[in-house]
Design a protein around this nucleic acid. Sequence first.
DNA 1: TTTGAATAGCACACCACCCG
DNA 2: CGGGTGGTGTGCTATTCAAA
Length: 328
Amino acid sequence: MNEFIDGVQLFVGVVDNLVAKRISLQSALEEFVIKSCGSDLAYIDNRRDAKKEYGFDFWHSVDMNKLKDQGIAKRLRYSESQQFPDFLFKVKKFGENYIGGSLMELKDSKGGNIASFNSTIPTKLKSLEEIDVINSNNLVSRIARIMDGKLALDEGYLKFERRCFYLVRTHRGSKKAKVSIVDGSFFETVPKEHLFNQMFLNVLRAHLKKKEIKIPQATLEKVEEILSHITDQTLIASSQIIEKASVRPRLRIMAEVHPEGNPHSKSYPEITEGSFNLILESSPQTRKLEEEICEHIPKVEVFSIIHKRNGEHIVFQFGKGMQLTEYM
DNA sequence: TTTGAATAGCACACCACCCG
DNA sequence: CGGGTGGTGTGCTATTCAAA
C-alpha cells in the first residue's frame, strides 16, 4: 500500500486488458481507465459515454432515490460535465490517514507533443478544494463525497492532497503511438504561483527591451516584489470589466508542455514507439513497487530516465518492440 | 547547400454546466 | 435562459533539423 497505488492499479489493469485484447493501444483513453478501474472511481467526467460507449454505469452501486437529496439533478447523472479532472479515484484509509484518491487526466494527441493544458496547470498534488476553485463550482467534490461515502466524513477530506497522474498518448492512430501514465512531478518543476508572476514579469521585460526603456535596477526589483503577489489563478483568468470598453478581455491560462517535460519526446528515447509505460518519480516508495509490479506482469521492463530538472524517474514499460502487431 | 519533413507555438472553434 | 467560465481537439505557419 503506498501513495502510488492508483497509478499502479491502472497500469496493471490496462496491461491485463491489452493482453486479453479487450482494448488496444489505439482504443479511446477513457476506455483504458473505465475498463481497468471503473469501480474504483469516485468521479467520472463523461458519465454519458462511460455508459453509452463502454457499458459502465457510474452510479451502479448508488441508491438513485438518494441522489436527488444529495443535489445531483437528473440531467447531470449521465452527462459529460467537461470539468476538471477527467477521473478521480476513491480514497482509501491507511491507519488514520487517507491514501489514493488520485486525479487522472487524459491527454490524447495526433502529433508528437502533449495536448495543451487549458485553465489548469499540471502539478504533482491537488486537493478537492483546489479542484472546486479551478471549476468555480463544486460538482466534482459533491459527487466524490457521495462515492467515498463514510470515508468522506473526515474533517480533512476536502484538503487532502491527492496525487495527479496524466494518461498521455502521442501519435494516436499511427504505429508511432506511445501511451504513458505520467506522475505529475514530471511536469511541475516550479510552483505554479511562481509561474504566474514570472509570466507577467517576462511580458514587462520584453516590453522594456523592445522599447529600449531603461529602468533602475532598484525599481525593477520593487516591481518584481509587487508582481510576486500575483498568485491567484481565478483572479487572473476571470474576464475583466474595463471602463468604457464594450469587450471584456479574458486571460485564459494555458500551458504547453516543454519537450523536457514530455516523456515521449526525443529527450527520452527509452520510451519506445508502441509501448505502454508507468512513469513515477523515484523514491524509496517507488523502488518497493518493482517487486510487486514484476510479480503481476512478468514481461515488464524497469529502468530509469533522468528528468533534466526533477531528476530520476522510474519507468515500468510494457510492450517494448513486439506490441506493434500484437496490441494494435 | 538545398529542400523537405517534423516540431513548436499559437490560434480557432466549438461545447457544457453553473448561477443569477 | 443567457452570460460567465471552463473543457477539448485540430489547423496553420514559422522554425528547426536532417537527408540528399
